[in-house]
Design a binder for these strands. Sequence first.
DNA 1: GGGCGTCTGTAACCTTGGTTACAGAGCTGG
DNA 2: CCAGCTCTGTAACCAAGGTTACAGACGCCC
Lengths: 220, 220
Amino acid sequence: MSSAPAGDALLALYPILTELTARARQRLQARAQLVQVPAGTTVFDERQACQGFPFVIAGSIRVVKAAPNGRELPLYRVTPGETCIISSACLLGQAPYNARGVTEADTTLLVVPTDDFQALLGEQAFRDFVFQLFSERIADLMQLIEEVAFRKLDQRLAALLLGKGQRLHITHQQLADELGSVREIVSRLLKGLAEQGLVALSREQVEILDPAGLRRLAGA
Amino acid sequence: MSSAPAGDALLALYPILTELTARARQRLQARAQLVQVPAGTTVFDERQACQGFPFVIAGSIRVVKAAPNGRELPLYRVTPGETCIISSACLLGQAPYNARGVTEADTTLLVVPTDDFQALLGEQAFRDFVFQLFSERIADLMQLIEEVAFRKLDQRLAALLLGKGQRLHITHQQLADELGSVREIVSRLLKGLAEQGLVALSREQVEILDPAGLRRLAGA
DNA sequence: GGGCGTCTGTAACCTTGGTTACAGAGCTGG
DNA sequence: CCAGCTCTGTAACCAAGGTTACAGACGCCC
């Protein structure tokens, strides 16, 4: 847990932090905790109090809303260089978490205690950075609300398939998880897409044959 | 459009502003625009650029996500003393609006230009205020996502009926609008609730007979 | 009182998505 | 090679919610 290399990685990933005052940077180095968590760990969950603000150094956190019946709806991911809007909101509002965060891979976090986070916010540069991420994530959430409230699943699936290259190596189950749905439905819909000539299917693979067609479907 | 009375009302509604530095307050007074809008006006809409930050002095703004087919899902309301998270997010991220704002009643706004809003954020007191509202609204949005993604309509209806007193003067259509659904379904569900003895129905009125039962239904 | 607009009740029907229940395909390690 | 695993295909059935189409109720104004 040497803080110097962590500090280097931190500054590389969050260049905004180089604009902090020397004092703030020292405080960060002194107080922040470097934490290693294996893949699949729940790092926070609904109703928990927020213990600190996480910078993601390596790995990623998948933030989901969990249904009573066990299904999950992904809200967003936090990857190195980003911040977690829900953690910010909980710290700022002194409210408990209202979603769950699970590591997708082995993950390294630098956790900043609550009051140090508040102090960081006093710095113009950091504040702008947090606000910026905030506003991006709000836009994402609005997009998500629009999707779950108004879009049909085939449209959401089409959108999900786009922008990831021409061949996706992924199982139907994983696609279903991304959509908050179930495997059988995704299989059924993929079959439909294949019949329209939009994709070609094989084991653990989806090949995009007609991106424009998919886009049309997704946008409709 | 005299700014003095507007200023008084503003300070009464947003007491946090009394903690601003004199300079910031003067700037506010000098630059902010007092605007009157009648009920039913669309004050901002999807894809529009954000022109300024609105303080609500009187009236209220209903912020909704509009579906392609014309239906609307209410996200939240902005009443006097509150702020609009989407406006903040758009200003901060220099992104266009991603929702629609419609006045519910005749409404008085004090609109602060973009760069003055940015300047205001430099003030600790105002920043804390905006952050605070931010975090509350995020929590609301998370709640909303949970509801539209996981809850059945009867549960959402039950929740909607609670906490508004014992007799609600409201039409089925208005309830449907709040839920982003349609009148027929709300009528059907209300009938169900009435048959369970939870409510009693009459023209433009819903009487809550069994609040505990409704809560149980809503929470399930 | 009669006409009109709003509000409510309700039935038939449809679409979407989820559930249940298997069967078979393909890989992998012993 | 074959036992067992994961992944896929698929059919039957179901529940929720939306759509369409009316009919009657109530209130109001002329």
